[in-house]
Write a protein that binds this DNA or RNA. Structure first.
Lengths: 215, 215, 215, 215
DNA sequence: AATGAATGAGACTTCATTCAT
DNA sequence: AATGAATGAAGTCTCATTCAT
């Protein structure tokens, strides 16, 4: 039985926050628990009051992050019917998240590979949900005649790669503020889902595949 | 000093190939030199005949990879003037590379962070070149009236994120073959650079920035 | 100071019993106080209401065990004069103890080595008492002409090793029940104390000592 | 490929010898690899050139010890037919081993419990062999009419417990030299296998089992 | 060029023990 | 008397790196 306000309630958030900082800075394998402990104001051994081992620590952090983002998206779509508005809301949450919560975004993207088997699959599952949500928005827009796509599955990953990529280059106090970015990306995504002219495929493709793809 | 036909010429390619495989599979910090050695048919100590230390090994691998991609792009653009054709060629090389050379693509994307200071900056410089090449293509297309963009710098990173993202999800023998992918992505990129209707920005953006962005 | 009926009276026996189980199962160094606590329904810190430290805990357990066995032997010999009957009673208590109280027997045999200096000597002293008791029985029997031995001190440890060894192999519900075992061991011990024919010593002993004893 | 006389050939025997000393002195859980290393003239990490982990180290040590003793016994029985002579030889090897090789004897007796599952069963199997060898000697002697026993299986463990017990109390330069001990134990074992008078069982046995055996 | 063995630093983890509540 | 959290020391094991051969 835990007393309300016990020291656990104070310490874990500190560890969590420090952890995300260090995971962002050094990566999972590059960070170490001594550092996590000392920057959290603890001895290394004390961390084990909060998780079973380093891998589970990572799993908890990553899982919490992904669930929070999913929740934010869910909130933003809640009660909205119009596919174009749903899309705009989806994009805006993603842009804000990948800029304002850059560290969390990077960590949850990069460190899934370091999870222990069981947790790995669990979180891959969570990641699939993002695709499903966007896929549903697009399918409804296509059905409603407001979007046009060649291959829905592909456009989904293309958009997601583009949006999650933001965290990789965005710098706070950079050239563009977040609101502007939201506008720009909304524009880009909208174009991606519009009808386009017939395009010509690059010539000599077969030869180029040989050329570029030879190990 | 390298003797022609010395065992270096046989062994280094093996180490290099094994290294890319292991970097892809475990990441830089997660791989280890004993494994690299044993999978290359050597003892760990012998590796030091081929590089000075683990970090330099990584730097060499990543640098070679990035230079090869730059070269491929350069070859594909060589002698081509038309911005739309240049764009198609750029896209096709990128799609092929990030599918057929998935391992190299992932390694060079993920492990730059682990480079020692000096080499880090060098390779960040190489990475900038990709942006400059694409930027130039777009600027010329805009100047020629065939592309329309809101913010050229942004569209560059957006497109690059989308294309480099391919390596993260592509699986050989998956649903779409490479040629098809090239077509699809060419289509998408083309749309991204086309004129679009005025789009509405998501409502309540200020509030959402607060909501999503609170740590 | 112990309050009658305080929770100490309930909790210590639980700890004690759990402790013997864990000492038997894992050994002193292999058991740990967190496990002792959790299997006793406590947190680790609470154990320190019952002992000063892990070593003292062991000392108490082992000491109690040895004193109980000594008491049982004492009870069984009490008022019995005849050396042969005293011997039979001694053997029967030892056989019963090392079968029915197997865990205690093993623990007190194995863990003396882990005791802190002072308690170590104390318990070695207790162990000597067993030898003295048996020695006295044998000496009286020899004096009375009912036993015959070559070397009383040796026969004492030989018999004790044989009897204490029972705990190492005995399994409840095994082939022989305890009553039968008592009979068998009484028979064996009796023979060990009888007159025997002259025996021949193994030949080539000096050489064999060299051969077997070379490190 | 190992060069003859490589440093492995010098180092492992040192580690082995030091290991037995430390296992004897502190037990498996009580010893530590840093100490093993430093007393072997190495750094702790270097030990891992010689075994995979601490448990495997123990398994190797114990296994080697038991195999050596089995070999010594086998040598001593080789070509000897007469059951009484075989018995004398068996006893003499055991006595010598458990005195002159006291450390090895103690280690192999005490630490089997700490072995990893697979190796545990393997070594329990080796231990059974000692019983089988003695059992065969006794059965043949009984068949030949030179030994008389109530229960062969029991007398086997009784004798073995007595003999292996020697290592627990023997001190070099003690009162009795090894040759004398061999004589004494041969005498004792011989008596144990002789015909004895009918013995009376301890009275009140049922009650005593209750009394002594209550937890 | 390659090997086998060694180093030394550091990582994760365990655990007896303490102590404020 | 019990709890939950913390400490600090220590232990096993890993690994980049070195070096004599």
């Amino acid at each position: 039985m835990r007393t309300v306000g016990s020291s656990r309630d104070k310490t874990w958030p500190i560890i969590r926050k420090t952890g995300i900082k260090l995971l962002f800075r050094h990566g999972f394998q590059g960070m170490n628990l001594r550092l996590l402990a000392s920057e959290s104001g603890l001895q290394a051994g004390s961390l084990y009051n909060y998780f079973d081992n380093k891998n589970e620590f990572l799993a908890t952090i990553v899982s919490d992050i992904m669930k929070e983002l999913l929740q934010q998206i869910s909130d933003a779509l809640d009660g909205v019917q119009d596919p174009e508005e749903r899309l705009r809301n989806f994009v805006s949450v993603m842009v804000i998240w990948h800029t304002k919560r850059k560290k969390e975004a990077i960590v949850s993207q990069s460190e899934i590979r370091n999870l222990p088997k069981g947790r790995y699959e669990e979180l891959i599952g969570l990641r699939k949900e993002f695709e499903l949500i966007l896929r549903k928005i697009i399918d409804e827009g296509v059905a409603g005649g407001v979007f046009r796509v060649l291959d829905a599955r592909l456009i989904v990953v293309a958009i997601l790669n583009m949006l999650t990529g933001i965290a990789g280059w965005y710098k706070p106090n950079g050239r563009l503020d977040v609101e502007t970015l939201v506008g720009e990306y909304t524009d880009i995504v909208t174009k991606m889902l519009s009808a386009g002219k017939e395009i010509e495929v690059a010539r000599g493709l077969r030869r180029r595949v040989q050329q570029v793809g030879r190990a």
